[in-house]
Measured scan of single mutants.
Amino acid sequence: STGEEYIAVGDFTAQQVGDLTFKKGEILLVIEKKPDGWWIAKDAKGNEGLVPRTYLEPYS
């Protein structure tokens, strides 16, 4: 699937089932941008889950 690459600007630990845990500096592939501010993203290992958009910045 296609998506946009974003870099994590902080650590995030999953708070509920379906969230994706990530560390600062990780590159995430954003698959869907939901209007509530929680985006669906995939990490380098292929894990998929919800992430808070405030922790992400476009990666170029």
Results as ranks from 00 to 15, higher is better:
1 S>A: 07
9 V>M: 12
18 G>L: 08
33 K>R: 09
14 A>L: 04
42 K>M: 04
46 G>D: 07
38 W>N: 15
27 I>Y: 11
43 D>S: 10
22 F>H: 02
24 K>P: 03
60 S>M: 15
25 G>Y: 06
13 T>F: 04
3 G>R: 13
31 I>K: 12
49 G>L: 02
43 D>I: 01
14 A>F: 02
48 E>N: 02
38 W>F: 15
7 I>L: 07
1 S>H: 02
7 I>H: 05
39 W>T: 02
60 S>E: 12
24 K>G: 04
27 I>K: 11
52 P>N: 15
23 K>G: 07
56 L>H: 00
55 Y>V: 14
3 G>M: 15
59 Y>W: 10
38 W>L: 15
42 K>T: 10
54 T>R: 14
55 Y>L: 15
46 G>E: 14
21 T>A: 06
15 Q>F: 07
26 E>T: 10
29 L>P: 02
30 V>A: 09
33 K>Q: 11
22 F>K: 00
15 Q>P: 12
48 E>I: 03
15 Q>A: 11
39 W>R: 01
20 L>C: 05
16 Q>N: 11
59 Y>F: 06
57 E>I: 02
31 I>R: 11
48 E>M: 11
37 G>V: 12
59 Y>N: 06
10 G>I: 13
32 E>S: 12
11 D>L: 02
48 E>F: 13
58 P>E: 12
1 S>C: 12
37 G>S: 10
34 K>S: 03
25 G>C: 02
5 E>G: 03
2 T>Y: 02
54 T>V: 13
23 K>T: 12
49 G>N: 01
16 Q>I: 03
13 T>V: 03
19 D>M: 15
37 G>F: 12
45 K>P: 06
34 K>D: 06
26 E>C: 07
36 D>R: 11
57 E>W: 00
21 T>W: 03
8 A>R: 00
60 S>D: 09
42 K>P: 00
60 S>G: 04
20 L>H: 03
21 T>P: 13
27 I>P: 06
18 G>D: 11
12 F>G: 04
49 G>M: 02
20 L>R: 01
17 V>S: 09
8 A>K: 00
37 G>T: 10
25 G>S: 07
42 K>A: 05
49 G>S: 01
35 P>I: 04
10 G>V: 09
38 W>C: 14
2 T>A: 02
52 P>K: 15
51 V>D: 00
58 P>H: 06
2 T>G: 04
31 I>Q: 09
48 E>G: 13
1 S>I: 11
40 I>C: 14
55 Y>G: 13
38 W>P: 15
25 G>M: 04
36 D>K: 14
58 P>D: 12
55 Y>A: 12
59 Y>K: 11
42 K>F: 05
60 S>L: 05
51 V>P: 00
51 V>R: 00
44 A>N: 08
39 W>Y: 13
47 N>E: 10
5 E>L: 03
39 W>L: 14
34 K>W: 04
34 K>L: 07
41 A>T: 05
28 L>S: 00
28 L>P: 00
21 T>V: 10
11 D>E: 08
14 A>P: 13
28 L>G: 01
53 R>A: 12
25 G>N: 08
40 I>F: 06
28 L>Y: 08
17 V>A: 12
53 R>T: 11
12 F>N: 12
13 T>K: 04
32 E>C: 09
40 I>M: 07
54 T>I: 05
23 K>F: 05
11 D>Y: 03
59 Y>E: 11
31 I>M: 11
9 V>Y: 02
24 K>S: 04
57 E>Y: 01
3 G>E: 13
54 T>G: 15
17 V>W: 01
33 K>C: 12
12 F>V: 03
34 K>Y: 03
22 F>P: 01
54 T>W: 03
4 E>K: 12
27 I>S: 08
58 P>K: 06
45 K>E: 08
11 D>I: 01
38 W>Q: 15
30 V>H: 00
23 K>W: 04
20 L>P: 03
50 L>N: 14
47 N>C: 07
21 T>N: 15
2 T>M: 13
56 L>W: 00
18 G>Y: 05
34 K>H: 03
60 S>C: 10
24 K>Y: 02
45 K>M: 05
57 E>G: 03
26 E>A: 12
41 A>W: 00
43 D>C: 09
53 R>Y: 04
56 L>A: 02
37 G>E: 13
50 L>V: 07
20 L>Q: 02
28 L>W: 00
3 G>D: 08
31 I>V: 07
40 I>K: 12
8 A>H: 00
39 W>G: 02
10 G>T: 09
41 A>S: 07
60 S>Y: 14
32 E>M: 11
33 K>L: 04
2 T>S: 06
35 P>K: 13
33 K>F: 05
56 L>P: 00
41 A>H: 00
4 E>I: 12
55 Y>I: 12
7 I>M: 14
32 E>I: 06
12 F>D: 01
43 D>F: 01
17 V>I: 10
3 G>Y: 10
17 V>R: 10
39 W>F: 13
32 E>L: 06
51 V>K: 00
50 L>D: 04
50 L>H: 10
2 T>D: 01
48 E>V: 12
54 T>N: 11
44 A>M: 05
8 A>L: 02
1 S>D: 15
33 K>M: 10
27 I>V: 06
8 A>G: 05
15 Q>Y: 06
21 T>I: 08
34 K>V: 06
7 I>A: 03
16 Q>D: 04
60 S>R: 05
41 A>F: 02
56 L>M: 12
55 Y>R: 14
57 E>D: 02
42 K>V: 05
6 Y>F: 07
30 V>F: 01
30 V>S: 03
27 I>A: 05
13 T>Y: 05
50 L>I: 10
53 R>C: 03
45 K>F: 08
15 Q>K: 08
30 V>G: 02
26 E>K: 04
56 L>Y: 00
2 T>V: 02
35 P>N: 15
16 Q>C: 04
2 T>N: 02
47 N>Q: 08
57 E>S: 03
13 T>E: 06
41 A>C: 10
24 K>H: 04
5 E>S: 13
47 N>H: 09
15 Q>G: 13
19 D>N: 15
30 V>L: 09
8 A>D: 00
13 T>M: 08
25 G>P: 00
6 Y>H: 07
53 R>P: 15
49 G>T: 01
29 L>E: 13
46 G>V: 01
56 L>K: 00
39 W>H: 03
43 D>N: 08
14 A>C: 02
11 D>P: 11
8 A>C: 04
24 K>L: 04
